[in-house]
Amino acid sequence: MKQAEQYTEAQLVSLLQARKQEAFAYLYDHYSGALNAIIYAVVGDATVAEDVLQEVFIRIFRKIELYDHSKSRLYTWMAQIARNAAIDWMRKTGNQPSVVNQKAPEDVPTQASTSFNPDTTDVRQWIAQLPKPEQQVVILAYLEGLTQEEISQLLQTPLGTIKSRVRSGLVKLRTMMQVNR
């Protein structure tokens, strides 16, 4: 059931900080699909993604006071929580989130209700199209949650080089998304 109300971001944040149930229902109706896609990109399993999504909403509920609108939009903040929760789940369960070990898009259960959009799996396909050095660091940073410092040590490559590769990889991904939309 969709909420009829429309909130500005400031109104929504204020209601979320007051722990209003209707604000969380609105948040779910508007953002759960987008957050779910981020989680799925990491865990590669729709059922697991559902469980992680619940954890994401609980984290949002607990941490909403920490949200600072001057540093990012609400969605950006939530998207980072979603990615971190997915990576935490993968680490906790001993899974290895990598492009290679992800399930193929066709493995997504068909019971996903209204409109499963195969485009949501594009992130992994796009990452796979990056040049190898950039692909490697984007996978390690974005899907596996390693810090740039950790990647630098792992690959025995200077931190500045790792940062450059992460940044140019992200720029290329953005360009691919724009071209393919």
């Binding site: 779910y28 759960s32 987008a34 799925y40 619940q54 909403f57 969605y75 950006t76 998207a79 499963f116």
Partner: peptide, 27 residues
């Protein structure tokens, strides 16, 4: 940020309807 948000909202990965109730009840 706005561009990424709009793109993300245009390609959601939907959940079964029961998931909504489960998550809202958990909250």
């Amino acid at each position: 940020e706005e561009q990424l948000e709009q793109q993300a909202l245009q390609m959601p990965l939907a959940n079964p309807a029961a998931t909504r109730e489960r998550i809202l009840n958990a909250l």
